[in-house]
């Protein structure tokens, strides 16, 4: 059960990611969480997705986060939670216990009759091509979004012809 250590590692890294007061530390812990997650994914047989998770989740997102932190300035967030800590803890634990009691233990599935292919590329480019196409839409929409959000609107009055 050596995988247990990965799980514990994920928990610690995830916890640190949200507990570190300094923004840049948060981002780094998140990268570690992501890396450990991708290891677990690899162990589950999702080779390609693990690579993508490693590059996008641990790589791109961290870079973007660091970039954003650079713009807003790396600060130490010492604010006290608005929702009382124990109330939040209570709510989350209640939810987890309730969910967990209905989810664990899980059975090994007996769906071996499912005919669906287990090849990633075929699934992505042929069967679920619509999802892939929608990713492109999402990408373009978000590009528009970032452009729109970053645009300088101060010249609005200047351009008005009326």
């Amino acid at each position: 059960m050596w995988q247990l250590f990965i799980v514990i590692g994920i928990c610690i890294a995830g916890f640190q990611a949200i507990e570190s007061k300094r923004l840049s530390h948060s981002a780094l812990w998140l990268a570690l969480t992501s890396a450990l997650t991708s290891w677990l994914m690899y162990l589950l047989g999702a080779v390609e997705a693990a690579v993508i998770e490693l590059s996008v989740g641990a790589g791109v997102v961290t870079i973007l986060l660091v970039f954003a932190i650079n713009i807003v300035g790396d600060q130490k967030d010492e604010s006290k939670p608005l929702v009382p800590k124990y109330l939040a803890m209570f709510i989350i634990l209640t939810a987890l216990v309730m969910l967990g009691s209905m989810l664990i233990p899980i059975q090994q599935a007996d769906f071996l009759t499912v005919t669906s292919t287990s090849v990633f590329a075929k699934s992505m480019w042929e069967e679920r091509i619509l999802d892939t196409m929608l990713q492109i839409v999402l990408l373009f929409a978000s590009v528009l979004g970032v452009l729109s959000l970053m645009e300088d609107r101060s010249n609005e009055k200047k351009d008005q012809s009326s």
């Binding site: 679920r128 619509l130 990713q135 839409v137 528009l144 979004g145 959000l149 645009e151 609107r153």
Partner: peptide
């Protein structure tokens, strides 16, 4: 079901931007 979620997510992205359209 999953495709529904993707459409849903794509449908949701645009309003985020449009709501904050007057970002000044």
């Amino acid at each position: 079901l999953f495709n529904l979620w993707v459409w849903f997510e794509a449908m949701a992205i645009t309003p985020y931007i449009l709501v904050a359209f007057y970002h000044d």
